[in-house]
Write a protein that binds this DNA or RNA. Structure first.
Length: 272
DNA sequence: ATTGGAACCTGGTGGC
DNA sequence: TGCCACCAGGTTCCAA
């Protein structure tokens, strides 16, 4: 899926076409996403206008006044803008149409994503406990260092924990740890402040760079216009198992952390 | 309180 | 071709 850069790319792609447009129809082709869609409540969006589109972590929030809808893209989801009446593609589960004859479609083969209609999105169970935004000033070295002190979990899992910091998924966690010279299995309480600062800077820079390139498309991510991102050409370790490290030539190794593929250079990323 | 693993799904790939 | 095992941008939930 979509990590933060892909979600941000999606947000930027859909916002201009939808802001201040009135919803004329909401169609639920398949309500069985990660959580069943409240089909009846979704009809109450009709007649409301989208006041703003914001992102919180990997969630997109469409503020429609007294109601909002929240979209998460899961592992395989994407949002596209289509002309009204365009042919449906396989896995187009939700369609929201607007008074400018543009429709927003949620396509999600694996259905790990969600579409939630609610009056108070930020207080929703799924969003209420989210940690800081990685690109905000609230994500800084001492914050990370403090959060590392009381635990022994490895640093990769810590930076992928959305109660600590949102939006850092598997690809960018791999990349940021490589750029920081930190072994992904390092116990987080072994990191010093200098390492925390490096990690903070590299998480921010890798996310910003990926946003600039429209995100990473490995298989099926596309933006609102159906186009892929280009950051995969910039990946230094993710997907490069057994290939030479770009810094030192050592063959990159893989370990599985919490079931997720983790690629690193044992020379450039020594264990602390 | 932490942590590891299963669960939710479809589709693509590679081996036999 | 076909069948099968395994893998994938995420996150919640449950049991140890």
């Amino acid at each position: 899926m979509p990590e933060l850069p892909e979600v941000e790319t999606t947000k930027r792609g859909v916002t201009p076409a939808l802001e201040n447009k009135k919803i004329t129809n909401v169609l639920i082709n398949n309500p069985n996403l990660r959580w069943p869609i409240d089909t009846k409540l979704s009809q109450k969006l009709i007649g409301q206008s989208v006041l703003s589109v914001t992102r919180r972590g990997k969630y997109l929030i469409f503020d429609c006044g007294f109601l909002s809808f929240i979209v998460h893209l899961g592992m395989s989801g994407s949002l596209r803008l289509t002309p009204k009446g365009a042919t449906y593609k396989k896995h187009d589960h939700v369609e929201v149409c607007f008074d400018n004859n543009i429709c927003l479609r949620l396509n999600d083969p694996r259905r790990f994503g969600c579409f939630i209609v609610t009056d108070l999105p930020l207080e929703h169970k799924l969003l209420a406990k989210l940690g800081v935004e990685p690109l905000s000033p609230s994500f800084y070295a001492n914050y990370l260092f403090e959060r590392c002190q009381k635990r022994t979990v490895n640093i990769k899992q810590l930076i992928m924990n959305s109660e600590v910091v949102v939006g850092v998924g598997n690809i960018y966690a791999n990349e940021a740890l490589f750029l920081s010279g930190i072994h992904p299995l390092t116990s987080c309480n072994q990191l010093n402040k200098v390492q925390c600062l490096a990690l903070i800077r590299n998480i921010k820079s890798v996310l910003r760079a990926a946003i600039k390139q429209g995100g990473t498309t490995l298989k099926d991510f596309t933006n609102a216009q159906g186009k892929p991102g280009y950051f995969q050409q910039t990946l230094l370790v993710y997907g490069r198992k057994d290939l030479p490290c770009v810094e030192c030539g050592t063959l990159l190794r893989e370990v599985r952390i919490n079931g997720r593929s983790t690629i690193f250079c044992e020379y450039c990323q020594p264990m602390s």
